[in-house]
Design a protein around this nucleic acid. Structure first.
Lengths: 346, 346
DNA sequence: CTGAAAGCGCTTACAG
DNA sequence: CTGAAAGCGCTTACAG
């Protein structure tokens, strides 16, 4: 040992350099494998690193290199069926690139006030933005700073070229309604749509209308309900339908949450699923298969969505160009709520 | 405007200082409200900040102040019923303190190799550690660096004084089994315990045994099954019990996941819940109320657990002392799976 | 109440 | 292949 360094605190690049008898520039080159370093020198540096238990200091590294090695994720809230699998996919992707992940959930009331925003160019190399967690003005502002970003489940504000990741909502809904009509003989199919600004809902409704039209069925607009993708609101709507004595033979809940509401309303009125009315949802949330009867729905690859988003973002960060739109495939999952004969798997 | 600064990139503290006609030290004092600054000066600085849309650079701040303003969370994986509500609580807490949150999920195979660990003294001011996401050796190492940390749902390695947050598993289990015995007249109560090293399971089993003993019932050890807190393993165990023709009038699944397995096994054998056998769980996961019949279980305040953990960690970070053990209360939730007459809420 | 200056731990041209 | 040195954007004694 060249020296007896006994700082009681963390080793710095200086300590390593002194210990190995080289300059800090060389240590930096070894650590980051940037530039040529003689094999023997490299080994001495590695020994020093091991002996001193050296770990580079993230903030210093970030300051000097003008990179943070951190990706930011902005979500509207940490809950909902989407959050967990999406985060899982994102985390896996982020780790694969050796990056860190900073998460921020925007309180509903946060509206701009630019200089205080907790995630941005100063602490991340790029941003993943979940649906409506950020308004258009904020997205535009960030975009103009040149910060790479990728949107999840939403289109960019007009004119901005920001990659978007989502899944095939329209064709998924189309397949689902096709199935109800062709295989189950349904014709009076109600639709519970989501919030006005929700793009998933928008495309699902389009798929529904396409299917109906393709089969020559006129959509009865009184069978379109604003379920808001909310269990309790959906329940109220379906209860109203029942009270009004509307004839319908199937309910297409725009998401599984509202399907829960439909189940509740039908149960309350002793209307049997699927014997009296079929119910189908969208998303395939974990609960779906445990309901009685198990819910027919469309499976969406949420986790993969997170992975792909990170991939695209990294391409941007590394100066490449990303795909403006990535549509991940969805899959029809037939369970008993639409009347088939498959056995339950509780 | 004193000057016409047209850097095409982010404003720095220098820009602000020049614009306001003060030193960077003064800007720093205004921004961080540290030290006295004349009212008029402060206003000039604020104007400059607004005009230049200045945001402090996190990495530089961290470097200079030797703080990161970031908390780290280590989890074993981003899934499981605990993760989401826990993270929600943590995020809320972290934001309340104006901190950032860095999340890292440890791959199963990660074993030490100290110098490469992605979360530590160099990028966080403190760590939240979820159950067994880190082994004792790693925890000990981090502890010795002096990094503040708090454990969730696990005790510290012997000899280390690290605050732990968990809930009243034992008394929760005790209340639950008391109820089965006293209100439902059960006596042959099987128990599906969790993994060996799982501390929640350990305490729940103790609560179970306490209750049995208190009511003069000898525990039949053949009715203790290693369900591993896993739906499919639990299902297999219960199927074995049925095959062996064991008499039992209730199953206490150590967690709701294993209760799902019990449900499946009983269903497969046409054994009715609760008429033939009562089933109860622990945790009150979201699915619990949707099962048929809805599951009687013990509600655990997971989200609050996250908040409290952040509070304790911040006390440590700020140099105060935290509570070594925080036990959050649990609550019995009676539903139909143990045979009461309450109506379903599907 | 304010400023000059050292220093935080790195990276990165630049020169050799 | 290697080193000296400037510089990243801040904070914080220290002086006044």
């Amino acid at each position: 040992m060249p020296e007896n360094i006994t700082t009681n605190h963390r080793a710095t690049i200086d300590d390593v350099a002194r210990y190995a008898g080289v300059s800090i520039a060389t240590v930096s080159r070894v650590v980051n494998t940037t530039g040529q370093v003689a094999q023997s020198t490299r080994e001495r540096v590695f020994d020093a690193i091991a002996a001193l238990n050296y770990t580079p200091h993230a903030a210093a590294k970030g300051l000097a290199s003008r990179r943070t090695n951190t990706l930011g994720l902005i979500v509207s809230e940490i809950s909902g069926a989407f959050f967990q699998p999406m985060l899982k996919g994102i985390e896996a992707g982020v780790r694969a690139y050796g990056y860190d992940l900073l998460i921020h959930s925007t309180p509903r009331d946060h509206q701009g006030h630019a200089s205080r925003y907790p995630l941005g160019e100063y602490n991340t190399d790029g941003l993943l933005i979940f649906t409506n967690s950020l308004n258009e003005a904020e997205i535009t502002r960030l975009y103009q700073t040149g910060l790479p970003m990728v949107l999840l489940y939403r289109a960019p504000p007009p004119g901005l070229e920001i990659p978007t990741i989502t899944f095939e909502n329209k064709s998924g809904a189309r397949k689902l309604v096709d199935y109800l009509i062709e295989q189950r003989g349904k014709r009076r199919i109600a639709f519970l749509r989501g919030p006005q600004e929700n793009e998933d809902s928008y495309w699902r409704e389009l798929g529904y209308r396409d299917s109906m039209a393709a089969h020559g069925i006129t959509v009865d607009e009184s069978l379109i309900g604003d379920g808001e993708f909310d269990e309790y609101i959906a329940r109220r709507i379906v209860n109203e339908w029942i009270k009004q004595n509307l004839t319908l033979d199937a309910i297409f809940a725009g998401d599984d949450e509202s399907a829960l509401g439909a189940y509740a309303a039908l149960n309350e009125n002793q209307i049997r699923i699927p014997q009296d009315i079929a119910v189908v949802g969208f998303d395939d949330i974990p609960i779906a298969r445990y309901l009685s009867p198990p819910l027919t729905t469309v499976h969406v690859p949420i986790e993969m969505t997170g992975c792909v988003a990170v991939d695209q973002l990294m391409r941007l960060i590394r100066g490449g160009n990303a795909d403006l739109l990535t549509l991940l495939p969805t899959e029809l999952v037939i369970r008993r709520s639409c009347g088939n004969k498959e056995s339950a798997t509780p």
